[in-house]
């Protein structure tokens, strides 16, 4: 039987929804699912992991050294338990992408990045070339199979299942001290989380300044949407880096994606391929974004967006 270890992402208080999506991938593989929770504070995230549908066991690794997710510190702890599993999964977030390959190296096995579909317990599909091709990979006899899970491809499993057993793992006292956490700064926009939001409004270079980028926030507020940005908008300082959507930013799958003044470069489009509906407002009728947009409006965004806000408000949003 497959024994699948899913590495949890959390902030010490809340379990990230990314974890529940990685568990969904584990369910698609099929087998007994264990979630590993590493942290200084693990009680809350462990409890949340234990109540995810399909989870049979939770392993906690509580230690001050785990207060911040440092791959160099966490990979050796996971390597000690990983050998008894057939699969080890982590979400394909900056957390999982940082950690899983290091763990793979310690185990001397390859890793699969961004698994988007499970064909069999050893055969997986993943995107390459910014999503312009999908490759099917067979891992054969290799164990454990390590993979990061592309979040946009899996719906989070339900929570509220009968609680799984939580077991504490003894953390070795000697852990690398060559990597030290200094700080993290995040701009809390007060808007929904971009990675998992049902609606997203993104702005591009056309917004022209951080002040004018507020228009994107305004429309997002009316729609109850998260805010995103193109690389050009982030590079220009209109929006912080964690709002970048695309090949090298976040890959998202909202129900509704609204692109304002974004040209539609392949690196951007790869981030929104799985969006249910794409709306594009761009003044250039030949902008490539219109090839992928479900609803395209050729217009100056500085005229169209205020109208759109007014129209949505008048509909009682």
């Amino acid at each position: 039987m497959n024994r699948i270890l899913v590495i949890a992402e959390h902030d010490g208080r809340r379990l990230a929804e990314a974890t529940a999506r990685a568990v969904a991938c584990a369910q698609a593989i099929g087998g007994e699912i264990t979630v590993a929770v590493l942290g200084a504070e693990v009680a809350e995230p462990a409890r949340a992991a234990a109540s995810l549908a399909g989870v049979a066991h939770v392993l906690t690794f509580a230690a001050p050294a785990n207060a911040h997710a440092l791959a160099a510190v966490q990979a050796p702890q996971l390597a000690a338990v990983a050998v008894s599993f057939s699969h080890v999964l982590a979400p394909s977030t900056t957390f999982g992408k940082d950690l899983l390959p290091r763990l793979a190296a310690l185990l001397d096995v390859p890793a699969l990045s961004d698994v988007m579909a499970v064909e069999t317990a050893t055969r997986f599909r993943r995107p390459i070339y910014a999503g312009n091709a999908i490759v099917t990979i067979e891992a054969g006899e290799l164990r454990p199979i390590l993979a990061t899970v592309r979040l946009a491809s899996f719906e989070a499993v339900a929570t509220g299942a009968a609680a799984a057993a939580i077991e504490a793992v003894a953390v070795p006292p000697e852990l690398p001290a060559h990597t030290r956490f200094i700080s993290v700064t995040s701009q809390d926009s007060g808007r929904p989380d971009l990675a998992t939001a049902r609606r997203v409004v993104s702005g591009g270079r056309a917004l022209g300044s951080a002040e004018k980028f507020q228009l994107v926030h305004e429309l997002a507020a009316v729609l109850g949407a998260a805010v995103g940005a193109s690389r050009a908008a982030v590079d220009a300082g209109y929006a912080p880096n964690d709002l970048q959507v695309g090949q090298t930013g976040k890959i998202i799958a909202p129900q509704l994606y609204v692109a304002l003044g974004i040209s539609g470069a392949i690196q951007h489009m790869t981030g929104i391929k799985d969006a249910r509906a794409i709306v594009a407002i761009n003044k250039d009728p030949d902008a490539p974004i219109f090839e992928a947009a479900d609803y395209g409006l050729v217009a100056d965004l500085f005229e169209a967006v205020p109208q759109l806000i007014a129209e949505l408000r008048s509909r009682g949003r």
């Binding site: 096995v109 390859p110 055969r123 091709a133 490759v135 099917t136 290799l142 794409i278 992928a292």
Partner: peptide, 16 residues
């Protein structure tokens, strides 16, 4: 140690 068994274009989006 991994074998690429198949390459495919991504599923096309419907024309908008």
């Amino acid at each position: 140690r991994l074998t690429a068994v198949h390459y495919a274009p991504p599923p096309a989006r419907q024309k908008g």
